[in-house]
Nucleic acid binder design. Structure first.
Lengths: 123, 123
DNA sequence: CGGTATCCCAGGCGATACTG
DNA sequence: CAGTATCGCCTGGGATACCG
């Protein structure tokens, strides 16, 4: 138990980013939140494929990291609003650069995949 | 089997990015490759925690996406070099922005975590 | 050196049901 | 509406062994 599998690098910042962004939904949620504050189920509809459990989990993680804030309004059926914190906003600027890259390079990536698959389809 | 769990959004670019970057190692490898071309085992040592299998897998994925190129040199024990493609380079510029963000905001994130954990340690 | 194959576990994530 | 609890699948990924 020497934490062998845990000794990436002493303080690798990329690792830090990965630990909170490298999952199926975090970035997507952050990106969604850039527009405005969103309520739980609304967010759930917007992201679609996500389940309540995972949305809840991811939101909690993001909240814990200080990227998202949660506001509860004591209305009748209870309203909860999620929004980016200032820190979260600074991150989403970078995230949007990533999204922008994807938009600009989707075709190149797909072409590369097709070429790769065509070159070695059997293996 | 209507691919219910697969209908995120028609062509969500963030999803595209996530599908290739949202794993434990891809970003780290990309970041390492920014410096220069690296051989398999050398890369393995640099990244450390990673296993051959996963390094191989991730490299293949990256190669398939046209982000990394693989050069084989018919030397005695065989030398294989991995380097970023021009496309890969354009991505790592964004990736480095992410890394930079992490470097600048690690403290804020850790502070937020401490505050969060301190506020609700029992649950 | 640079992989591939196999085994296996942890946990991410989805589906469903239930609560306040 | 906004979650939490439970269950179970599937896959990411680590360990080990083997191959060219």
């Amino acid at each position: 138990m020497d934490r062998i599998y845990n000794v990436y690098e002493d303080r690798c910042p990329t690792r830090l980013v990965l630990d909170r962004l490298a999952d199926k939904w975090a970035l997507l949620i952050l990106d969604r939140l850039r527009e405005d504050a969103v309520r739980f189920n609304h967010l759930r509809r917007e992201i679609k494929g996500i389940s309540q459990k995972v949305l809840s989990q991811t939101l909690k993680k993001l909240e814990r990291d200080g990227l998202v804030s949660r506001s509860v309004f004591p209305t009748v059926p209870v309203t909860v609003e999620y929004r980016l914190t200032p820190l979260g906003h600074t991150l989403t600027e970078t995230v949007s650069a990533l999204t922008h890259w994807a938009e600009s390079n989707m075709d190149a990536v797909f072409a590369a995949q097709a070429a790769y698959d065509g070159a070695s389809p059997a293996g």
